[in-house]
């Protein structure tokens, strides 16, 4: 059957919308460390075995075909249109039970819905498979193919599998009152394993009264660090401290500022992918379009 691939993907997405309707959003936090690492390794191993030993099976040919690229892109664009058109709830604050028919299909929390994650997983599996093939077979501009596809794969992988390990907290930091209390988006209190205290806060203003620059001198366990907007401070592997706000109504005597703690251990995977994609974008510009006829089989 010629359109078996379209039908399979379409039916899967339809069924996953049904799952979403019945069971609610995907339990993202369940897949936190070390489960996500184990699953990534098993998934990669399975794809590799599939590629090496079962290349001529229908499923493997499906995961390698250019038609799958196109179908996946179209599905991804359609689901992104939902995100772009329908207001989304914060990922940290899911909707809960109930809601109208459309709400239960997850249109307000598309990025953590079953169908969306399925398409992302399919896209990543497809990228992994064509990368395996590209390493072995591809001729022509092989390194451009590999950096772009492997880069996108890593960027997606870091975001997708790393989201369960990502934590964000808001921390009000006061002068002369060292503290450890941080708040998650749902209001839950979390105690940091280091102490924060505001030492100094400086704001400059434009003539029209808008703040032009501000910076906070903060003590992290007694050690002074300077925080500015766009200049976070790295606490340790995968954990950074951001300046997000301050006591805006206080006038000259600012008593507190608001910091954000971001734990994102997978950010290095994402950054590696982004850098590879940046390089491949340069190559895309320099080398231009693929000459037709030569690489047709290997897209």
């Amino acid at each position: 059957m010629k359109h078996l691939d379209i039908i399979s993907i379409g039916v899967s997405v339809f069924l996953l919308f049904a799952v979403q309707y019945i069971a609610g959003g995907f339990p993202v936090t369940f897949f936190s460390f070390p489960l996500n690492i184990i699953l990534v390794l098993l998934w990669l191993l399975a794809l590799w075995v599939l590629y090496k030993d079962y290349r001529h099976t229908r499923f493997c040919r499906f995961l390698l075909s250019l038609r799958t690229t196109v179908i996946t892109f179209v599905m991804f664009i359609l689901l992104c249109l939902v995100i772009g058109l329908v207001p989304q709830h914060s990922a940290m604050m899911p909707m809960g039970e109930g809601g109208t028919f459309w709400e239960r299909l997850g249109i307000h929390e598309m990025t953590t819905s079953w169908p969306f994650l399925f398409i992302l997983l399919l896209l990543q599996s497809h990228l992994a498979m064509i990368t395996f093939r590209g390493i072995r077979n591809r001729k022509g501009i092989r390194w451009r193919f590999l950096t772009s596809h492997l880069g996108l794969w890593l960027a997606l992988l870091g975001g997708f599998w790393g989201s369960a390990d990502t934590r964000m907290y808001r921390v009000p930091v006061y002068k002369e009152q060292p503290g450890r209390m941080a708040y998650a988006a749902d209001g839950r209190v979390h105690y940091l394993d280091y102490e924060l205290e505001l030492l100094r806060f400086e704001v400059d203003y434009y003539d029209n009264g808008m703040p032009s620059t501000y910076q906070a001198d903060v003590a992290v366990d007694g050690q002074e660090v300077i925080l500015k907007v766009n200049e976070p401070h790295s606490i340790r592997f995968g954990e950074d401290l951001y300046l997000t706000g301050y006591d805006m109504h206080a006038g000259d005597e600012i008593r507190y500022c608001v910091l954000q703690v971001v734990r994102q251990p997978w950010k290095y995977v994402q950054l590696t992918g982004i850098i590879m994609m940046l390089l491949s974008a340069v190559a895309l510009f320099v080398k231009g379009p693929i000459k037709r006829g030569k690489d047709d089989q290997l897209g």
Binding site: G159, V229, E231, P232, Q264, M277, L278, V282
Partner: peptide
């Protein structure tokens, strides 16, 4: 692509997330 990814790297510095 260059615009989008420079935006992602900047977003990480400014807001804590690439995307």
């Amino acid at each position: 692509t260059l615009g989008m990814l420079s935006g992602a790297v900047w977003a990480k510095d400014a807001w804590g997330n690439y995307w």
